[in-house]
């Protein structure tokens, strides 16, 4: 008589296969959406959707990037349905050239330079500038530079070559650096004169 492998209860399997990765999914979702509630809802959608596929997840070697990739695809599906909003122009993910054009088109869309900016407000200024980037550009920068994701891991989740990640990071930083500098100039000038 063949012995059937022990199969833990569904809740235990959930706790073992999904629960340890939910925080990571939330952080990723927050980077994608920029909103706490949206991030929680996104994770909830994906987890509910994935729950019947625990058997599949059981065989995944690296669950975190796998789940993040599912989450990302779900996010892309969601945002494509809201194509009327510029904020969700995830289609720009596909072509690096179009991304460059998009970034350049934002040149005049930077926040009000007259806003009082000081050293302690760099974070706020960067946040505003990040919001002028397409969401995929913004997410890429934050995942890599703030959250410490490796370029290889980002490439896996976003399903683009590492070289593309590298070049997009470089371009996004150059854009941000230039805009931030312009934002800081009035304050720095004031400091010098004061």
């Amino acid at each position: 008589m063949a012995l059937l492998p022990f199969r833990s209860s569904s809740s235990k399997r959930f706790d073992r296969l999904i629960l340890p990765y939910m925080k990571g999914m939330y952080i990723f979702a927050y980077r994608l959406t920029g909103q706490k509630q949206d991030a929680e809802d996104l994770v909830q959608d994906v987890v509910v959707k994935m729950y019947p596929r625990l058997d599949e997840l059981e065989n995944v070697q690296q669950p975190q990037p796998w789940l993040n990739r599912v989450l990302y695809r779900h996010f892309v599906d969601l945002t494509r349905k809201q194509s009327s909003q510029r904020e969700i122009s995830v289609s720009t993910l596909v072509a690096a050239e179009s991304q460059t054009a998009f970034i350049e088109s934002l040149g005049e869309a930077s926040p009000d330079a007259s806003a009082g900016i000081d050293q302690t407000r760099i974070g706020e200024t960067v946040k505003r500038l990040l919001n002028t980037l397409p969401p995929d550009q913004r997410t890429l920068l934050l995942l890599h530079d703030a959250d410490g994701w490796r370029q290889e891991d980002i490439a896996t989740v976003l399903d683009v070559p590492v070289g593309t990640i590298k070049s997009r990071l470089h371009r996004s930083r150059a854009f941000m650096r230039e805009r931030l500098k312009k934002q800081m100039e009035p304050f720095e000038k004031q400091q010098r004169e004061g």
Partner: peptide, 26 residues
């Protein structure tokens, strides 16, 4: 300066019930 600004973009903690709620829904 840019890196300092990017590092300041922290992720807020999810609500206390986040995991239990999602677990319950699943």
């Amino acid at each position: 300066r840019l890196q300092k600004g990017i590092m300041a973009q922290t992720v807020p903690e999810p609500n206390d019930d986040f995991e239990s709620r999602v677990r319950a829904m699943a």
